[in-house]
Every structure is written in C-alpha cells, then in structure tokens.
C-alpha cells in the first residue's frame, strides 16, 4: 500500500496542484490575460497547434544539433587534453571563460556576427559544451591506475588503451555530461531566441512566447511554456534512459 502511494504520490500532487489552480481561477473569475486556467492553456495548445508545433520543431532541432556538435567537439577536445596535458593547461581557461560568462550577455554579440539561426545554434552549443567537455576529461582520466599498468605490461598500443580501457571507463562520466548538457542546450537555445527576437519561418518557441506577450495573449504564452518544459523533460528522460541502457549491466550508478 505505501509502495503504491509512493509511485502515485508525484502524480497525485501534480493533479492536485492543477485542480487547485483551475478552482482558484474559476472561483475568483480571474481574467485569462492575467492568469489562464489549465483547461484554457490546454485548449490554446490544441487551437494553436500549427504555430506552436512548428516553433517546437525549430527549437528542438536547434537544441539537438547543438548537443550533437557539443558532444562531438567536447569528446574530441577531451581526447586532445588527455593525450597532451599541456594542451589542457593552455586551452581549458578559454572553456572556463565561455562557461562563466552568462550566455544572455554573449548572445547579442553573436547576433551581430552571425546569421540569426547560426547565432542561436552557437549559444546553445556554448552552454552545452562545457559540462560535456569537463565530464569527458574527468572520465578519460578515471581509468583504473592498475589497469593502465596492466595494459603497459602487455605492450598495448595507445590506440588499444584508448579503445579498450579509457573510452569505456569514461562512458559513465560522458553520459552524465550529456544529461546535463541536454538540458543546458535547450536553455541556451531559448535564451538566444529571446535575444534574437527572430520572426517568420525560423521562429522558435521562445520567440512565440515573446510575441504572444506583446499581444497580451497570456494563454498562448502558457501553452508555449508548457511545450518548453515538456521538451526539457523529454530530453532528460531520453538521456537517462540511454545512460540506464548502456550502463546497467556493469556500472554501480545504474545497478
């Protein structure tokens, strides 16, 4: 019984919160341009689906492309860092500067230099890059010292050591970086879209939120916001599942 309650608890709490919200709006007769009821948000989501789904696709495409580039780039640079220690000393400060400078402050500059779409992609890339890079570096370094000695004892080539030992050792860390980077890439894309304020065909979810705000179309703002949240959750769940599938046989974190 308590077990069942534990599984149901989060759903129950969520349903209660929504019901409370709905009741508050109805009882107080709050106008929708101040706070729309959840039912109205849902109706708006259905009614505006054409516009919103197109915007969702734009934002998702940017996010996933940025994440793919950040993964490839982060892993490649991590391999360079692991191979030549001085390269890490030389280049890591740049990565840190990019990481600690708020993306919202970099975005306007990127928008000056780049096409809007490229600038948005660059922003999403920048925020996703650092956690993937630093986790991959940590992972490549975390190979068991004794196993490294064993590989040396049997005269393993650098390539064999990388392929058979360092990359598998790094996998849990890399997947952890991916999970953080996935959420951050979405945030980067949203922030950049807002800074860009791009209209027309290339408009993402964040632009639709800004645009609806100008028109005081608060229900649509909520509908778009719901999609942003859902996209973030989906990305997190997808990477958690990936991590679970690839590690559950041998790594303690997913046992």
């Amino acid at each position: 019984m308590t077990r069942r309650l534990e599984t149901l608890a989060p759903w129950l709490a969520f349903a209660l919160a929504l019901a409370g919200w709905e009741a508050m709006v109805r009882l107080n007769e709050t106008p929708p341009y101040i706070l729309p009821a959840p039912s109205l948000v849902l109706r708006t989501l259905v009614a505006d689906w054409d516009i919103l789904s197109a915007a969702l696709l734009v934002t998702l495409r940017t996010t996933l492309l940025a994440l793919a580039l950040a993964s490839a780039g982060g892993l490649a640079l991590a391999l360079v860092f692991a191979r030549w220690r001085w390269s890490e000393r030389a280049l890591f400060p740049f990565a840190v500067v990019l990481q600690v400078t708020p993306i919202i402050a970099i975005a306007p500059l990127l928008l000056v230099y780049l096409e809007t779409e490229a600038a948005v992609l660059a922003c999403a890339f920048i925020v996703a890059f650092f956690p993937i890079l630093s986790n991959a570096v940590l992972g490549l370094r975390s190979a068991d010292r004794n196993l490294v000695e064993l590989y040396e004892l049997y005269g393993a080539s650098r390539w064999a050591q990388l392929r058979l030992l360092r990359l598998p050792s790094a996998l849990p860390y890399f997947l952890g970086g991916l999970r953080i980077g996935g959420g951050l890439a979405l945030i980067g894309a949203i922030v950049a879209e807002i800074a860009a304020g791009a209209a027309g065909k290339g408009a993402g979810l964040a632009f639709r939120i800004v645009e609806a705000g100008y028109r005081l179309n608060v229900p649509r703002m909520f509908a778009a916001l719901t999609l942003v949240s859902l996209a973030g959750i989906a990305i997190y769940v997808a990477f958690s599942a990936l991590s679970r599938l690839s590690l559950r046989r041998w790594h303690d974190s997913e046992a």
Binding site: D144, N146, L147, L150, Y151, Y154, G155, A156, A160, L164, L165, P168, L171, R249, W250, H251
Partner: peptide, 18 residues
C-alpha cells in the same frame, strides 16, 4: 583490477587480445 564492463572471459582474453 578487472574491467567491470567486460565478461570474465573477455577479461582473461585481454593479455592475448593486446
């Protein structure tokens, strides 16, 4: 000092594999 992702036989195979 075994590779946790590799089966027992793959761990034993390692010196020859290298």
């Amino acid at each position: 000092t075994l590779m946790p992702w590799a089966s027992v036989e793959d761990n034993v195979w390692l010196p020859l594999r290298l």
